[in-house]
């Protein structure tokens, strides 16, 4: 019964018919369409030729991007405590979470009484790193972050891309939070 009424209700005004283009004489001539297309490209060409500096592209090495947000994952850094010592407690959470196995930590005993452990060495091979941010998620001490805003890392040999502990500590956060929120 219901089946029947539904079929009966489909009339020609309920069917949406998409209008097909390309069958008119003007469309079949093809040359007017080319004229329209060339008009657009010409307009852009002359507008930009008239004032090249108006083109909204980033003149990259001189102009740096200004639209990097706080959540954008740049190069890693190791955070500090309030007394400027390292926040990391060498728990290996980050290297365990790392899907590309690019974090290499060697732990040692911490002498100043703030914590038991600290990393003796902390290497990140940025050629292996996929910048997924899992290490930041995994860190219980807010000791590793990716908020430096550094998007370009260059070097002359592969070894240049392996960041050591001192390099990672020297990176500054690009946003307000400088020291670790969990260890201070």
């Amino acid at each position: 019964m219901s089946q029947h009424t539904r079929e009966g209700s489909i009339t020609s005004d309920h069917i949406k018919v998409t209008k097909r283009h390309g069958n008119s004489f003007r469309d079949k001539l093809y040359l007017p369409a080319i004229y329209d297309g060339v008009k657009v490209t010409f307009k852009h060409l002359f507008k930009n030729l008239n004032n090249i500096n108006d083109i909204e592209t980033l003149r990259y090495p001189e102009e740096q991007p200004t639209d990097i947000t706080q959540r954008w994952r740049g190069l890693h850094r190791l955070t500090h405590r309030a007394d400027n010592s390292i926040a990391c407690v060498a728990c290996f959470m980050c290297s365990t979470a790392c899907p590309s196995n690019c974090i290499f930590i060697e732990a040692t005993q911490r002498q100043d009484g703030k914590d038991e452990k600290m990393p003796a060495s902390f290497f990140i091979d940025t050629l292996e790193c996929i910048f997924c941010g899992y290490c930041v998620e995994a860190c219980p001490c807010d000791a590793i972050r990716m908020d430096t805003g550094i998007f370009s890392l260059t070097g002359n040999k592969r070894e240049d891309f392996v960041m050591n502990k001192e390099q990672l500590l020297s990176h500054k956060g690009a946003f307000a939070e400088e020291i670790s929120c969990a260890r201070n």
């Binding site: 852009h44 060409l45 930009n48 083109i55």
Partner: peptide
């Protein structure tokens, strides 16, 4: 260059 200018690039 023309391709760039047409597409609003340099």
């Amino acid at each position: 260059r023309v391709a760039g200018l047409v597409q609003d690039r340099l």
